[in-house]
Amino acid sequence: MQQIMTMDRSLCLDNSMRMEFDARSENEGLARMAVAAFMTPLDPTVGELSDVKTAVSEAVTNAILHGYENCEGLVVLQCGLHGDVLCVEIIDEGVGIADIEQAMQPMFTSKPELNRSGMGFSFMEAFMDDVEVYSQPGLGTTVRMFKKCGTTPWVEAGE
């Protein structure tokens, strides 16, 4: 499990960053601001910056709310830059996901009573170029996301 959970060093990253914070909802802002600051060398557009911030926010919220079920724990955030590609990993050692495919369905939520929309993974997939989820019940979850920055054209909101 640990093997999957660490970023592939053979990728020869130009820059990398790792931070650890308590699984508390007030740290969601910290996580997305940290990634936004880390990716500035890529010279992202305002849209790309928002996309990444939203995706990071979703993954961190999942880790806190579902991974650790709002109890104590540590969330690890790892970022890497490789050319014009940003890689972000959000790792928790919480309850894990038994059925990843079901969890990634739009509108699926295991906690409908909590005002959740069930759109977390859908937003991650919509706003990032690639999303990988590794999870084992009882061991935790790693969400790895990639985004190529600086070249993606702005996508209009569909009417």
Binding site: R32, S50, K53, T54, S57, E58, T61, L114, N115, R116, S117, G118, M119, G120, S122, F123
Partner: peptide, 12 residues
């Protein structure tokens, strides 16, 4: 800034 929590808020 808004994430899916905002969508959940609107649906609720």
């Amino acid at each position: 800034f808004m994430d899916s929590s905002g969508v959940g808020m609107l649906i609720g």
